[in-house]
């Protein structure tokens, strides 16, 4: 079986600094896969490069098609969704307007409707006419995930969705990601901490210095204290 997203020998640069040194990994249909690592090892750069926001050197294949070199909006139309770490809520637009802009074309309904979003996260229904800028951090995180889902992606890349959230909220994000995967959407979860990654992932990758340094299952990572100590624990 060939994977849905295949990244092979991916390099990326910011100006002259070489950030990614040949990253290789894959995500299969409907899988939850985590990409872990400390700050500054290139996790966010990896998904920005896949999304076309950073210029890729190497190969990125999505459903067998080479997407390295395409424009971000073209990549989005192929079915890749991106939820950035900074959440990027449109502050002046209401919750509803934020969600509407998640749709790639007006009125085109995929596997998710706005009602689904409200069911997944009832707080959004209550605040539907509130400007996105005044939501709490947790609400913004939910909104940004839901907004990307409105575009009906087949794979979403979520960058540090639990950053700065309360433990209770972290659990809810984990639950939300699970429910998304149940509908057949693959997830590439980027995290610094192990918290939800160990619980919900099928497979994990650990990054260090712009490379993949570990690949395995949650059980495998639990058993491997050496990798955790060297590449994850602070």
């Amino acid at each position: 079986m060939s994977a849905m997203l295949e990244v092979a020998d991916l390099h990326a640069y910011y100006g002259k600094s070489h950030i990614l040194h040949g990253v290789t990994f894959a995500v299969g249909e409907g899988e939850i896969v985590s990409l872990l690592g400390r700050n500054g090892v290139g996790r966010s750069t990896t998904i920005k490069t896949i999304m076309g926001q950073v210029r890729p050197h190497g190969s990125v294949r999505f459903r067998g098609r080479e997407i390295a070199g395409l424009e971000p909006h073209e990549i989005a139309h192929l079915g890749l969704g991106y939820v950035p770490e900074e959440r990027a809520i449109f502050p002046g637009l209401t919750v509803r307007q934020n969600l509407i802009l998640g749709e790639k074309r007006a009125g085109r309904s995929g596997r998710w409707t706005m009602e689904d979003m409200f069911e997944l996260f009832p707080r959004l229904a209550e605040r539907v006419d509130t400007p996105g800028g005044v939501l709490s951090g947790g609400e913004q995180q939910m909104l940004t995930i839901c907004r990307t889902l409105m575009g009906d992606p087949d794979l979403i890349m979520v960058d540090e969705p639990t950053e700065g959230l309360s433990p209770q909220m972290v659990e809810r994000v984990g639950g939300l990601l699970r429910r998304i995967a149940e509908r057949g959407v693959a997830i590439l979860l980027v995290e610094q901490k192990l918290t939800i990654a160990l619980e919900i992932s099928k497979r994990l990758y650990v990054m260090g210095h712009g490379r993949i340094v570990f690949e395995g299952t949650p059980a495998g990572l639990r058993a491997n204290a050496g990798v955790r100590k060297e590449w994850l624990e602070v």
Binding site: Q53, H73, A76, Y82, A88, F90, P91, L101, G151
Partner: peptide
């Protein structure tokens, strides 16, 4: 405010 995000949502910025 967020041109990159708009592009990532599939709009031709």
């Amino acid at each position: 405010t967020h041109p990159d995000m708009v592009a990532a949502l599939g709009h031709n910025v």
